[in-house]
Design a protein around this nucleic acid. Sequence first.
DNA 1: CGGCGAACTTACAGCGCTGTAAATTTGGGT
DNA 2: ACCCAAATTTACAGCGCTGTAAGTTCGCCG
Lengths: 338, 338
Amino acid sequence: MPNVRLSDVAQHAGVSTKTVSNVVHGYVHVRESTRAKVQRAIDELGYRPNLRGRNLATGRTGMIALAFPDLRIPYFAELAHVLSRAAGERGYRLLLEESGDAPDVERAMLSAQEAGVVDGVLLQPSWLNSTEIAQHRRGVPVVLLGESAAPLTLDHVRIDNIAAAAQVVEHLAALGRRRIAFLCAEESAPSETSRQRLIGYQQGLEHCGLPVDASLIVTGRVADAHSAARALGAALDDGMAPDAVFCRDDLVALGALRALGERGLRVPEDVAVTGWDDSTLASAVRPSLTCVRADEAELARRALDLLIERIEGFDGLGRHEFVAHSLVVRESAPRPAV
Amino acid sequence: MPNVRLSDVAQHAGVSTKTVSNVVHGYVHVRESTRAKVQRAIDELGYRPNLRGRNLATGRTGMIALAFPDLRIPYFAELAHVLSRAAGERGYRLLLEESGDAPDVERAMLSAQEAGVVDGVLLQPSWLNSTEIAQHRRGVPVVLLGESAAPLTLDHVRIDNIAAAAQVVEHLAALGRRRIAFLCAEESAPSETSRQRLIGYQQGLEHCGLPVDASLIVTGRVADAHSAARALGAALDDGMAPDAVFCRDDLVALGALRALGERGLRVPEDVAVTGWDDSTLASAVRPSLTCVRADEAELARRALDLLIERIEGFDGLGRHEFVAHSLVVRESAPRPAV
DNA sequence: CGGCGAACTTACAGCGCTGTAAATTTGGGT
DNA sequence: ACCCAAATTTACAGCGCTGTAAGTTCGCCG
């Protein structure tokens, strides 16, 4: 069945294609009788607008790309979920793009590559640094997410990692913990995420009058429970004796639980543990994880609003916004007894 | 920077637009000198093909939609990840669509709605039944994934749930377990997934000569660790005393671990537990989960191959394929001592 | 040296829709 | 009846690219 086109409807209804287009779009200046006639033709023929044609004519696709490291990391899956819904409410669809192990993907998102496919890009950079991002500027509208330092020229939405990390440390200190380990900082070239959480970690310690002890910083690969477990395990076997472990994210915290459990250390009695992200597993594992939670709904809202403003022509300097976060207290680092 | 068009390149190089198009596509019959000349023009002008135009002209978008229930369920995130890579290798991009709580999304995917946006649809139905799916047939090319019974007319790729479930039971029986509980079957209108795993569960029991005891079937909401924990907890408190729990998926298994742990039951000493999907958490959690693992890479490969054949014109009856699966043995239900 | 098929190139007509600007109709006055 | 602005409707020119069919050019045989 040859697809029904606008012109078919026009012919069937005895009007011009433009009038049909006007009806489809609910344009005001169409006589009621005409509208009805056209509508009937549309229904009879089962017409559906072809988005490709529309896109070509308008220069818009109604799609927004979301580029992030890896769908398999629970936080990103949840972020994608929330953004996808929010985008839908605004009449856009989300095209997911995993940058995975290739910086090229991020570069491609920023270049004009994507022009013609998406109207804008939400980018959570994991490879590119601020300078590189700033340079690739001449492409589609972009809003940055996450912790990496953003160039002044681009919009950026994130939570205050430093404050949140400090808050975590203060919570642990309030529990009476004095030897708070940090798991894991990348060995070399720590990501901006780790860097900021480390800064907050240190601020928190100082604020609570606790000593900053470099031997409590465990290095290792990130976002992988197994390597985190190995890293912490090695440190423990090496004699490190923390009474709390600040984990850079939930997956790492999962690894920490394992490493601690295997050595007979109880959580939270012997060692408190905190995660970060509040992914599904944070509340499901045992003990459930105390962790930092970003207000993802608001993050999605702000990021999309900024991006859509750009898509619609705004061309000012970058806006840099913080979004609320909270500390979700659970079993792995409970509320201090009063 | 007014976007560079094919015609600009053509003019710059002093050839026709079609020749430029031919060069871009690596068409064979282009003289080497011409090709070089055009290539130089492309580079100098920084030309990038506009996909919209191309799509309109060819009637292809190079996009495939993947519709599934929820990105936040680890299995689907991983499936999306694998399919996304596989699609990329075949020159397609994946557009994710969560059907979430609305059957309408699934219906929309099958209708012509999507025509013009994607070339084909991979659908993991969770709401529509076979009949309904069969009726909506006249849309984009479709390949079905997952357990729901598929109409004869559509392609379908899945693992053999019944065999896999039986295998799980046999493994548990080999461990000497005799009272194997099933967690969770939906209260009313069990999903096809639960139904098949239940059938396999029963087959496995019968095959091992174990009695089928309906009181060992725990009902509850699915794919949610908390409700699974509650459901199993209630059953345990009610006097059910299983020595193994067959969980319909990893998240449910996580809930089972919690419910058992809270009641002082050790896994696997007192009660063995199995999951299903082998999501990241299966190996990260403690004890790590023995579970069924689909060969996702092959699943992705087959599903895409079938879909692309359809996109390229194949119009035969539905092909129904099984993909390999395996039992990953871990701590929660270890290999039997020999 | 004419003739020929193969190797290259190109003109042109859309793909399906929308923006612009111009044409037509309508509804009130006068 | 006649004129004018407002309300409707339409013709037309693309958006950027590709398929088709129709040239051109080239190398080589007889």
